[in-house]
Design a protein around this nucleic acid. Structure first.
Lengths: 349, 349
DNA sequence: TCTCAGATAGAAAGCGCTTGCTACGTACGA
DNA sequence: TCGTACGTAGCAAGCGCTTTCTATCTGAGA
């Protein structure tokens, strides 16, 4: 039925071992023999049986990429970058790894399930992107899984997520706290005092760190007027909209809204506009991440640029062993404040 | 070293066959025995060896999803929807399929390479998303690959791409031509006559169909003033910007710009604004796809809403055999004109 | 009491590939 | 001329699982 190595061997008049070696190119084969084999491969339209080869060699060319939501550009960009870097080592023809993208939807259970599924596939590497869930039991469970993966030879890299102690996982962490602080400092320096904050879901590290940065900035400036102006919600547009409406209800005199990320910021903008408020004349708005659409918002969104593609590409290379892990296995990737049209000095007072 | 089926069998005092049957649940096993086995699995922290099982059963739980660029929400949304639907059949615990997302970058060679790689993995199904490349040799090559995949039992579904004759591939095609026509008809009905068109890359079906729709509308209205106002470029913001600058140079009196998709439209908007033109007072702008950010553009973008998630979800279900293929293996999915603030009547004239 | 069907479990033969080891040449140095 | 080493190719033993076929044990019906 389907063509096997043995068929190719028969046609090329060599042993299966030789065909395997030609295909893997890791053992000397005389040029003439190689030619013959390749010709047979071609004529028979032979395609290696991946599972069989994975079983025999106990390796696999699958690389897992865990994301919260691949439809979100934040994750799409990272997944894309990881994928572009996971080419195989050396010249091995068609030696590309396949990226298995796993949408956890932010659900702890699914995260664990996918990790198990990847372990089952004996994935060559796993890259976990985005903030982590902080539930203690879950963190321990993830750490355990990752430990087991490492033991089995799977390289594990965290990208945009805090390091996981007692684990071999390399971590490229985003400086969410620092970014959050800078952003709010920027608003404070413009003269804002009543700043609404639309935070992400409570239990995520990203949410917490960004919010902590915000609070640090406020505390540093001795500003207390904004203390109650925090609303939590999912990382999506609708949440930004709803939260902004809520904030506006709490304090109609607020002069700025900081959103957990750019998508949320877009929702906030929409809510403000619907309320008849101009940006930034009446209310300034700031986001986080600097996703591609942010520069095209009107006015362009002030935000914290995160080098998503660069960091994820690096994560991919580390996962493939093509780049050394940072010393200590942890590196903090800083964001950069991008001041644009959506923030300005508050009106009057 | 690593725990195998045999280890579990030994600990549970049964044969490997029994363990396998418990795990696969497709053969009667006495409740007591099952308990014992599951207990052993748990105690040993056993994880099935995917490749081995795939080899023995000659099945696999990988599903390939080919996209042009996973960082583009257009594809991200589809990939996400496919992924959410490819759960395994029946209750099989952890029986989820893994989505292998392959970024072709629109490159024909990579498309073929990935198809081979998926064939090598004996993927359970493959979903190809987005427009196809029209080069004849390439189309034939893809058709050949898909035929071979079908023969090997891999279900093939095309989502947002034209049917591929002489192939078992089920096609859910977007009505790009119809959408393009409606969009331009809308502009014509507003009174526009000099309409610039920012098209996608020449060799893609999506590009061609949308452009054909545009031209049909023009021809239907007997309008010829716009005939030379077409510029091709990639499907990204920068291209939209550059093309719009070019169009403005060609005909400074144009009153509308239709973009190949929403991302391109955003670039067009930026270029227009930089040129000091107001939207839609001076120039109307329209996009295609209705990506999430389009409604938040200012003014909100008039576009053709494509049910990306719905279509892709259906593609996923068909790929898993959970939904019947449409009669004839082809179904055309219509878009819906979404008129918003970015289009209006042309000024004066 | 004997037979037979039904329900479970085991034995064992692969699935298609990789790879350590062995075997064969041939060419070279001594 | 012989021994040695190197460059190639083949043998065969798995890799860890699934599944067919067979064996065993039960209880029911005769």
């Amino acid at each position: 039925m389907t063509v096997t190595l043995a068929d190719v061997a028969a046609r090329a008049q060599v042993s299966p071992a030789t065909v395997s070696r030609v295909l893997n190119g890791n053992y000397p084969v005389a040029a003439a023999t190689r030619e013959r084999v390749l010709k047979a491969v071609d004529e028979l339209d032979y395609v290696l049986n991946g599972p069989a080869s994975a079983l025999a060699a106990s390796t696999s060319d699958l690389v897992g990429v865990l994301v919260n939501d691949i439809a979100d550009p934040f994750f799409g960009i990272m997944a894309s970058a990881v994928q572009s870097e996971i080419v195989g080592p050396g010249g091995r023809a068609g030696g590309e790894r396949l990226a298995v993208v796993c949408n956890t939807g932010g659900d702890p259970e699914r995260e664990l399930t996918y990790l198990t599924l990847l372990q089952r596939q004996r994935a060559a590497a796993v890259v976990l992107t985005g903030g982590a869930i902080e539930d203690e039991a879950h963190v321990a469970a993830v750490a355990g899984k990752l430990r087991r993966l490492s033991e089995a030879g799977t390289r594990v890299v965290l990208c945009g997520r805090p390091p996981l102690p007692d684990t071999d996982a390399v971590a490229l962490t985003f400086d969410n706290r620092g970014g959050g602080r800078e952003l709010t400092e920027h608003l404070l320096s413009l003269g804002h005092r009543r700043i609404g904050y639309v935070a992400g879901p409570e239990e995520r590290t990203t949410t917490r760190h960004r919010l902590e940065g915000h609070r640090e900035a406020l505390a540093g400036a001795g500003v207390t007027e904004s203390d109650d102006l925090v609303v939590h919600g999912p990382y999506d547009r609708a949440a930004g909209h709803a939260a902004t409406v809520e904030l506006l209800g709490k304090d109609p005199s607020l002069t700025a809204v900081v959103a957990a990320n750019d998508t949320v910021a877009l929702g906030a903008c929409a809510a403000l506009r619907e309320a008849g408020l101009r940006i930034p004349e009446d209310v300034s708005v700031a986001g986080f991440d600097d996703l591609p659409f942010s520069v095209d918002a009107v006015p362009a969104l002030t935000t914290v640029r995160l080098p998503l593609a660069e960091a994820a590409a690096r994560a991919g290379r580390i996962a493939m062993g093509r780049e050394a892990a940072p010393p200590g296995g942890v590196d903090v990737v800083r964001g950069e404040l991008a001041v644009r049209g959506s923030t300005g000095a508050p009106r009057g007072k």
